[in-house]
Design a binder for these strands. Sequence first.
DNA 1: AAGTCGTGCAACCGCGCCCCA
DNA 2: GTGGGGCGCGGTTGCACGACT
Length: 327
Amino acid sequence: MGHRCCSKQKIKRGLWSPEEDEKLLRYINTHGHKSWSSVPKFAGLQRCGKSCRLRWINYLRPDLKRGSFTAEEEQIIIDIHRILGNRWAQIAKHLPGRTDNEVKNFWNSCIKKKLISQGLDPQTHTLLSSHRRSSACTISNNIHQNSNSIFIMSSHIPNAPFETTCQTFSTLPKPPPNIVQTPSSIVSSEFQTLSTILSDDGEPLQHLPYELLMENATNICSPTYMNPSAVELCNDDNNVNWVSRLNVHDFSAQTLEEGAQVLQVQQEKGKTFDDKGSDVREANKGNLETSVSFESSNFDLGFLESVLTSEFISHDLNCMDELAWNF
DNA sequence: AAGTCGTGCAACCGCGCCCCA
DNA sequence: GTGGGGCGCGGTTGCACGACT
């Protein structure tokens, strides 16, 4: 079945010949492509407009980058996919010279397999269930220099000495001065440009640019730097206000060794943050709160990632589109 | 050398959105 | 309000080619 747009025409399908490429290229370079449906007719091609458009976008466009993806591009794809999912066109916008088709193919042929081999679900970027039970997970510093990922998870060999896990925390590099000596709470105004560090009583102490927070996002979970009482990720997008809060009182290697851990995740809808970042946390009594507790000797930090990631992903993808993803 | 299998990628397909008459 | 055309997007297919037996 042909495309609706070209059902009346004699349509050739399949691979493009060099002659067809030449015709299309010459026509578009001369006339542009105001209407794809009329391109084949005027260019002398027996193709449908849709096919011409695809050929131009994916192959003939002069600004296309050739060759294999770099490690940096790969990491960008993974990072954005973690948030946006299979929105290849959106992802491709952040990779100059790459097309959505190219990104999609690269994902399906390479990245997907790589993530699976690492025990990660390529759709959710969380540990596959088969790995979740058999291994304790650590949240380690983000080793990749070009990544804005909040966490990188690494599997912890079940019977390995616990020091292996702790080591991850204790060898983190020193944080920048404005994040060290922290108050006990960080509020990340995730989808705006300011992030705020709050004191114990919720008063804003310091506003941080979003980029700075993200650059140092790994610090949030580094007990070497601090021992925050909560990590909050909030979105104040017009009428939709939400906060994800992770109480991580004892989020330290020391306590991990002690075994019993409590992670409380509070999802609080309806909270508002004014534009100065002040927290009016008592304002709303009707908040939805979800608490999850663990009493396991192996605190599953992988779950933390799941929670955070799902918050990022599920709450409002429209916000994601408006993110300042212009690296 | 011939057949089989796996992989990468170009191209197609169907759906949904937007615009306009 | 609605129906049709155009376009963009994500999922899928199928071919070409190299590796392997």
